[in-house]
């Protein structure tokens, strides 16, 4: 159901809501998933993203997002130069035909300076809306319209109860929860109705069987 601000807006850096605003959001989500200052980025652009990327500033938008710029930040235009100054190394690969992926899709792998990395695939759906479709090899589907907790943990009995307990303890309402499994690991995507305080994340992180916890905040 459209809001009037889907008609008048979004406020964004041009030229394209799909190729620029959505791309900046994807970079910004990757940065949040890394949870640290990125030192190196490997980006693969697929399909339409690969074809239009220079002309629509998709490269600048994704790098800007990785540097922490939002879709309405005028610094996006100069993000490649800013990346050089800040010591962010990046490379783009282009794949013109990836029929299984949405026409505007990107794979982003970020490395921090401490040797940690995160890899995700996301799509820009139009009007600045995005969908994250893969994180660390797990198939996922969420759109970052609300605060979203991303967890990778050992697949053990009771894990969901422990995690949802830690969230419920602080009176945070879970709107949606998706769980998927790959061999012995489980991935959980938990969409909640409000911001999540750091101590909730800390508690989840303290469980011995949890390997990865990040909070992704919505980007407007």
């Amino acid at each position: 159901m459209p809001s009037i601000f889907d008609i008048l807006g979004p406020v964004m850096i041009g030229p394209s809501s799909s190729h620029t605003a959505g791309a900046a959001k994807l970079g910004y989500v990757a940065r949040q998933l890394l949870g640290a200052e990125p030192g190196r980025a490997e980006i693969t652009l697929y399909n339409s993203f690969a074809r239009t990327y220079k002309g629509h500033g998709t490269d600048r938008a994704i790098i800007g997002g990785i540097l922490g710029m939002k879709p309405d930040d005028e610094m996006l235009r100069d993000s490649l130069e800013i990346a050089k100054k800040m010591g962010l190394k990046y490379e783009f690969k282009l794949i013109m035909k990836a029929p299984k992926l949405h026409p505007n899709s990107a794979r982003i792998k970020l490395h921090d300076l401490g040797g940690n990395s995160i890899e995700m695939v996301g799509s820009s759906l139009g009007g600045g809306r995005i969908e994250i479709v893969e994180i660390e090899g797990f198939k996922v589907s969420f759109s970052v319209m609300t605060h979203t907790i991303v967890i990778i943990a050992d697949d053990i009995p009771g894990s969901i109860a422990h995690i949802s307990g830690a969230i419920a303890e602080k009176n945070i309402n879970i709107a949606n929860m998706f769980v998927s499994r790959e061999e012995k690991l489980a991935n959980m995507i938990i969409e909640v109705d409000q911001d999540v305080p750091e101590d909730v994340l800390k508690k989840i992180r303290s469980f011995g069987w949890v390997h990865y916890v990040r909070l992704v905040e919505p980007i407007f």
Partner: peptide, 12 residues
Amino acid sequence: ACMGRIAAAPTA
């Protein structure tokens, strides 16, 4: 077109 700030209305 020059990557400045605009309000899409209804599109960019």
